[in-house]
């Protein structure tokens, strides 16, 4: 078995200090590897998004150690974090977060530019990424002229710019209808199973549980349960058998 890509060792994140301190993530430990599609579920305010930001190197842990491909993120200075994000992480957001002044093509190109890919090569790759998410005929559309599902596909293409091994998605189906949402999640699941990426997705959407390899449950900042694909499939077949 190869070394884990992302390791969290008793990681905590505390906002504020003294009496007003709020523990958003409490001593979370886990090891994640490529080729897995992992869901993180839990009630609002349970610390899911904070955990996602820690894993995405947008925040540093208050306590504990976090390793990303053997880089100890918790020990690095702030200036090194953008480098790690560029190299290893792609983000997909609930509200798409596309740049409204840029076309679909330019949104993806900009992400490539930030990763040091410029000019014709950036255009070629942006075109390929948008074609891959089924948007070849929407290249020069501004976000305001795209549907919700199309916007999320552009966001997905942008997240894949620079070919990051890890994709972190925060409620990517939250703004979409169930059919479109499912298509997006299927795309994410393929990116894990077919391409060997680690896809980690925060969601409230129970309907996509069957697509996951692992499901983590979070409550009050702590991981409280874990289900693997085997458990799930067993559960589903038991229900169907009844």
């Amino acid at each position: 078995m190869s070394a884990p890509w992302l390791v969290l060792d008793r990681v905590s994140k505390v906002y504020g200090d003294g009496a007003s301190a709020v523990v958003a993530v409490r001593e979370v430990s886990m090891e994640l590897q490529g080729g897995r599609f992992v869901l993180l579920m839990g009630p609002s305010g349970s610390g899911k998004t904070t955990l996602l930001m820690l894993m995405g190197c947008l925040l540093k842990p208050t306590r504990g150690r976090l390793f990303l491909f053997e880089h100890e993120v918790s020990a690095l200075d702030e200036r090194t974090l953008p480098f790690l994000r560029r190299r290893y992480i792609g983000f997909v957001f609930q509200t798409f977060n596309l740049f409204p002044a840029l076309t679909a093509m330019e949104n993806v190109e900009l992400a490539l530019n930030l990763k040091g890919i410029n000019g014709r090569e950036a255009q070629r790759r942006a075109l390929a990424l948008l074609a891959r998410v089924g948007l070849r005929d929407r290249l020069h559309f501004l976000p305001r002229d795209l549907s919700g599902g199309e916007k999320q596909r552009v966001a997905l293409a942008r997240a894949l710019a620079g070919d990051p091994p890890i994709l972190l998605a925060d409620e990517p189906t939250g703004m979409l209808d169930s059919r479109t949402g499912r298509q997006i999640v299927e795309l994410l699941a393929d990116l894990a199973r077919v391409e060997g990426r680690l896809v980690f997705m925060v969601t409230h959407d129970q309907r996509v549980r069957d697509l996951a390899d692992d499901i983590l449950f979070m409550e009050d900042g702590s991981l409280v349960a874990r289900e693997s694909a085997g458990d799930l499939r067993e559960l589903v077949s038991r229900r169907e058998g009844r």
Partner: peptide, 15 residues
């Protein structure tokens, strides 16, 4: 929020 997104997708403060 766009600046935040840029940071998330790898832009440094200098960018």
């Amino acid at each position: 929020k766009e600046f935040g997104t840029l940071k998330a997708i790898g832009a440094s403060n200098a960018d």
